[in-house]
Design a protein around this nucleic acid. Sequence first.
DNA 1: TATATTTATGTAATCGATTACTTTAAAATC
DNA 2: GATTTTAAAGTAATCGATTACATAAATATA
Lengths: 358, 358
Amino acid sequence: MSKKTTIYDIAKKLNITAATVSRALNNNPKISEATRELVLKTAAKMNYEQNRLAQALKSGKSYNVGVIVPRIDSNFFASVIRGIEEELYPMGYHVIICQTHDQKSLELTNINSLLNAQVDGVIMSISNVNDADDEAHVIAPKVLEDDIFNNLIKKNVPLIFFDRKKDIKGVSSVVIDDFRGAYDATQHLIDQGKKRIAHLSNNREMEIFKNRYLGYKQALIDNGIEFDESLVIECYSKVPDGRKVTQKLLALDTPPDAIFSVSDFSALGAIKEILAQGLRIPEDISVVGFSNEPFTKFMELSITSVDQSPTEMGRIAAKVFLEEVENGNNVKSEKHVVLSPELMIRKSSLSKYSAITV
Amino acid sequence: MSKKTTIYDIAKKLNITAATVSRALNNNPKISEATRELVLKTAAKMNYEQNRLAQALKSGKSYNVGVIVPRIDSNFFASVIRGIEEELYPMGYHVIICQTHDQKSLELTNINSLLNAQVDGVIMSISNVNDADDEAHVIAPKVLEDDIFNNLIKKNVPLIFFDRKKDIKGVSSVVIDDFRGAYDATQHLIDQGKKRIAHLSNNREMEIFKNRYLGYKQALIDNGIEFDESLVIECYSKVPDGRKVTQKLLALDTPPDAIFSVSDFSALGAIKEILAQGLRIPEDISVVGFSNEPFTKFMELSITSVDQSPTEMGRIAAKVFLEEVENGNNVKSEKHVVLSPELMIRKSSLSKYSAITV
DNA sequence: TATATTTATGTAATCGATTACTTTAAAATC
DNA sequence: GATTTTAAAGTAATCGATTACATAAATATA
């Protein structure tokens, strides 16, 4: 009952060979119109469906693409994935999604596992280095940070970074202009009359966080505001972490009058702490986040944030992948796409009468 | 350079046959310890990696499992997926995630596409019927609602529903006790002194929404409160929709003093509308949501909600799948797991001095 | 020592689809 | 009518791994 029909079944029924059936199904020109129609009709009648595994084995292409993200439970990554899917599904590709939960060890495991599954490419946002990694060392003692990706590159499997990238020869990337996003956010705070702007950063070995830091710094300098290193604190992009470090900032002799965070989640933590201490937002302290997560808009006290057009980012990453696949083994030319960020101005930073973006 | 080593390469190098190599790699007992070690060492040296496509073709198992959800951009579904992954990854399975965005047409497309990819099973939460579906009719004119799943069942591909299920012979499911979750939430509101409790429902052709509705109703009856149909409104599980229908509720001659919503998102919409109209929460109106999305805890005005232990739900769904796979073609015995919900009491419904859960 | 029994390996088919190469038959050309 | 060209279909190898069956070599038993 559940045995699947193969081209051999069709061939037998029609008294022709499997080769002919295959040609008919693949629109091969070397076949008569009559047999093609006959095969097509019979195939439909017999409920034939191509076995993609066999096809994949023969062609060396699995039509599966791996997508590795820190977590899918964030609007940003979910939206990027949606963009990727929108672009790849119509081309016959499937997307295998892997989460690293920001653990390097899982990143390694995932890549090997995808490689093993014969994916035709990997689109990923790299993880923050923050696990003890003991386990990883047991599993793969000698694998260094860069070897993870070299493994992919050696096998000629297209790799595309988005958002959290790394400069690796031959690897393309799609990011937003983080420097500008941070610059604009900081400039906005200055425009609102803020003078002592703190910065919730994150691991600055990662380009996105380094660039946001630099954009923030440059905006201060360009406005003649002294840069104060003590107002820059690193913390994970989580609510409790944001809250914890804000506590420290508020305990300073001269606490900040604004906070620009690299993450909406730590920005939310900051807000909770500020309100808990009985301070007013934005009158006493303004807050700006990054990523434009939906909750920033939902909050009663809506949060100003930098939009990264994630769906667009995903679509473009997918397009770059498709280009590389078509290029095949040709000399791989890196492609680097930089999208423009957009500041969404909301209540958490709007001191005056200006308009709210959304 | 990038040609992958196969067992034939290893065989040639060692002057043995591929069969022997295969046996050595698969821990087949019919082989000498000496050759096994030799093969293993050589394989490692030659960077051998098994081609899963070939293996899949031979065994008829792809070691891919499809997971279909309305959207991944919700903590609930993302957590279920995480649970599934935690259980399946160690067993060598990969998870292909598909989103339907609550469109039946996409549900159909996804299932066919997964079938085509030779997945070993499908774990899914069905979609709400809410698209015009014109496109779907063009693509697959005659496919009726139930045929979608029959297609899977006929091919003997294990299907497991979670959360949003449907009663289909031979199909297992993992859900929470929605009736109880709703009953507990409503009872809680009554305990807080509320007497006129509205209910934001959703398409009650779906079991989960029907059961939540029934639980709500039963709690009223058990407490001697008259059930008022005009206080029950259906709306999509989205913020703007929740807000819209709340507007109607507040415009009633006798507006409600509490709202129990089947969704945290529509609950949030309700809260926005209530506050916008200058009413107080929970003094004037209490609000309880469903799903325990993280934002319900994050809000300054935290939202009472029903937790569905999504990670657990995912793990169990995966386990049920594994059981069915092991059972193979044996008579399939349906398995129906029902998890217990937990009411998380927070500010949005806490009139008195009782304790907040989290 | 001859025979029976293990043990280790080889041979070849299989999973389903594709494709270079060949063959057959029909149509075109001289 | 004989020969060349073209169209359509067949043959068989291939992708990489697995495995039932066959065989050879080593060991145990009589």
